[in-house]
């Protein structure tokens, strides 16, 4: 199976005077899991809703292999969607919710039973959704997305509200879906939440694209070295003499401007016994925060 390419071209959406999405352009390829990241209010959900024809873009286009969502002949069989505000009638059972969607898409009822079993809701399938926990609603939303066995999956904050076991399950599940050749787009406001799952990321802030590419590309920030010794004063002198700048922290000295080997040599030359020497890359989360600015996370 090969999923469609998602293409967002110059997408802009204004609500009154607020610009939620501002001239956004990016591409999502099949076969990998792509993370769609940004702080709350960055415009992720609006972008996804515009892509799905629920929100009318002010300008620009969003398409699947060149066709807009409303032009898809069999939308649920092409694109599976789980949106953040998973919306269910509380008086309808989980299974009936899927049956309603299956009927509209011409999908046999048996498939509804299959996917609800798949996401682990088999025993709750005939209970009314009003009594479901947030995690169960997330799973039902995922079942809705999988109903048409689609080549493209668009999931808005799918990890929200899942328990640790559920998180592990969904991570593996997303990777296997991508490995089958599907296009998987997963939004999140926390990089750490999807870090282990995604291959590529699209990061937006205040409606604008700030980064698009691989996670590795994001990681190549300037490194630093964490070092410690019983005689910190001597170590500090040696490192400064060698040209490094230091910062005292609770877990040792943070050295920038030198690599680990240079720090080791300086210590050796000064006869300081090291108790710790760790080369560190700048945390991904830090890079992410830097990129999205004060957009808000904290």
């Amino acid at each position: 199976m090969t999923g469609a390419v998602i293409e967002i071209q110059g997408l802009t959406k204004r609500f009154g005077r607020t610009t939620a999405v501002d001239d956004l352009t990016f591409r999502v390829e099949p076969g990998v899991v792509t993370g769609f990241l940004g702080p709350n209010g960055a415009g992720k959900t609006t972008t996804l809703r515009a892509l799905l024809g629920l929100v009318r873009a002010t300008s620009g286009t969003a398409s699947f292999d060149g066709r807009s969502y409303t032009e898809l002949g069999d939308p649920l069989r092409t694109v599976g969607t789980a949106l953040e505000a998973a919306s269910f009638h509380p008086g309808r059972s989980g299974r009936d919710h899927l049956r309603v969607a299956a009927a509209a898409a011409g999908i046999p009822t048996g498939r509804a039973d299959e996917v609800i079993e798949w996401v682990g809701l088999g025993s709750a399938a005939r209970r009314r959704v009003g009594g479901y926990s947030l995690g169960m609603r997330q799973r039902l939303g995922l079942a809705f997305a999988l109903l048409g066995d689609p080549g493209v999956l668009v999931l808005d904050e799918p990890i929200n509200g899942l328990d640790p076991e559920g998180i592990r399950w969904i991570r593996g599940f997303l990777r296997s879906l991508a490995a089958e050749g599907r296009t998987v787009l997963v939004s999140s406001h926390l990089l750490s939440e999807v870090q282990q799952t995604v291959d590529r990321v699209v990061i937006i802030s205040r409606g604008r694209l700030v980064y698009q590419g691989t996670l590795d590309g994001l990681e190549s920030g300037p490194g630093r070295v964490r070092v410690d010794a019983a005689d910190r004063a001597a170590l500090a002198d040696a490192v400064t003499a060698a040209g490094g700048s230091i910062e005292l922290a609770h877990d040792g000295l943070h050295v920038s401007g030198l690599d680990a080997e240079a720090v080791g040599r300086a210590a050796l030359a000064a006869g300081v016994v090291l108790s710790l020497l760790v080369p560190e890359k700048e945390g991904l989360e830090d890079v992410f925060l830097e990129l999205v600015g004060e957009g808000g996370i904290r």
Binding site: L52, G53, L54, Y69, T70, L72, P75, L76, T81, L83, A85, S87, F88, H89, P90, H97, V100, A101, A104, A105, F144
Partner: peptide
Amino acid sequence: HQTLTPTFLATP
């Protein structure tokens, strides 16, 4: 109940 979302996703 915002069920227009799944409704319009299935029938745009």
